[in-house]
């Protein structure tokens, strides 16, 4: 070993103690090509423990029977049982459709409000610095707090929103927003957009700062109006940032059931039931961790596919 690790120029050991000294061995090892793997080992172990193990554990769960309220069934391998059940589960399909509506509508709304706010705040007017901080406030609120706050404001009898709409004359009678299947999803989407549009504002504002003002001067001389400048200069220059923000928000929206859990719990009926909420309820209401795991794996795969396709598409456009 010691011979094979011997590097040219290293002095042969003089005594037996020097030959077996750990410092000497480490010194010799550091001259070999194995050294870099040794240095990577701690972080590789950490990543395995923190990221890889839970992911794999979650996945294997979906192939097992795991019902905490039915210990008699054991926890044996059941292969694709849960997946087969999913295909025949109408609630799964409703949840999938609702997830698509929930995510798409929220993202579009958040992006539009975020973009408008960022463009407005990017103007060098007095007070914009303070406003830029104030506008971030909704995003600072925890989802749970924001959810309860809006639930109260949208409450059919005590809520301030019904009261205002009645006074303005837009409503003729109190409306129970979350009790009507036709308005529950829309109301939840508006709350979600209110809560998360500052995320887009923040990132787009950072992106806007990076666009040289000379481009707009040149565009002015070239005869491009405000809308043409937005379409042909600002948005293309923000493409990378927008792509990153959309991916992050989609992941967040697909994975977090908290806001819907507080506002509607998936109701009325199944009208606001989304996949994350379904998986959550499956695990913590029905204690069926096997099926919940299978639902999570499906979400995981959808998200991977989405991120891959999205990055690919936005890159193709760039070239």
């Amino acid at each position: 070993m010691s011979r094979s690790l011997n590097m040219p120029g290293s002095r042969p050991p003089r005594t037996i103690w020097e030959a077996i000294s750990p410092f000497r061995l480490i010194g010799e090892l550091s001259e070999t090509r194995y050294w870099m793997y040794l240095l990577l080992l701690p972080s590789a172990l950490l990543i395995t423990a923190v990221v890889l193990y839970p992911t794999v554990y979650g996945m294997q769960m979906s192939f097992r029977e795991m019902r905490l309220n039915r210990p008699d069934l054991g926890n044996d391998w059941v292969l694709f049982k849960h997946y087969v059940r999913m295909i025949n589960d109408p609630i799964f399909w409703v949840s999938l459709r609702n997830t698509a509506v929930w995510v798409t509508s929220s993202i579009v709304l958040e992006f539009l409000i975020g973009l408008i706010a960022a463009l407005a705040l990017n103007r060098d007017l007095p007070g914009t610095k303070l406003l830029a901080v104030l506008i971030l406030l909704p995003y600072f609120l925890p989802n749970v707090v924001a959810g309860h706050m809006w639930a109260l404001m949208l409450d059919p009898r005590m809520g301030v929103i019904n009261d205002l709409l009645l006074k303005v004359g837009l409503l003729t009678e109190y409306k129970a927003w979350f009790a009507d299947p036709t308005t529950a999803m829309a109301a939840a989407i508006i709350v979600e957009a209110w809560h998360s549009f500052p995320f887009f504002t923040l990132l787009i504002m950072a992106g806007l700062k990076g666009i040289p003002t000379d481009l707009y001067k040149a565009a002015n001389i070239d005869g491009a109006g405000a809308f043409a400048q937005l379409r042909l200069i600002t948005l293309p220059m923000l493409k990378t940032i927008i792509a990153a923000a959309v991916i992050l928000r989609v992941i967040g929206l697909v994975n977090s059931p908290d806001l819907l859990l507080i506002l509607t719990s998936g109701g009325p009926g199944r009208s606001t039931q989304v996949l994350s909420l379904y998986a959550f309820q499956m695990a913590y209401k029905d204690f069926n961790f096997g099926y919940a795991g299978a639902l999570s794996v499906v979400m995981f795969v959808f998200l991977m596919l989405f991120a891959w396709a999205y990055v690919r598409l936005s890159k193709v456009n760039q070239e």
Partner: peptide, 21 residues
């Protein structure tokens, strides 16, 4: 008169070329 209607053309120090075009 708006810059675009002055019938002028300008070359900037930074060139100000549109990077995405």
């Amino acid at each position: 008169v708006h810059p675009k209607d002055r019938n002028i053309a300008m070359v900037f120090q930074s060139y100000a070329l549109y990077p995405t075009m």
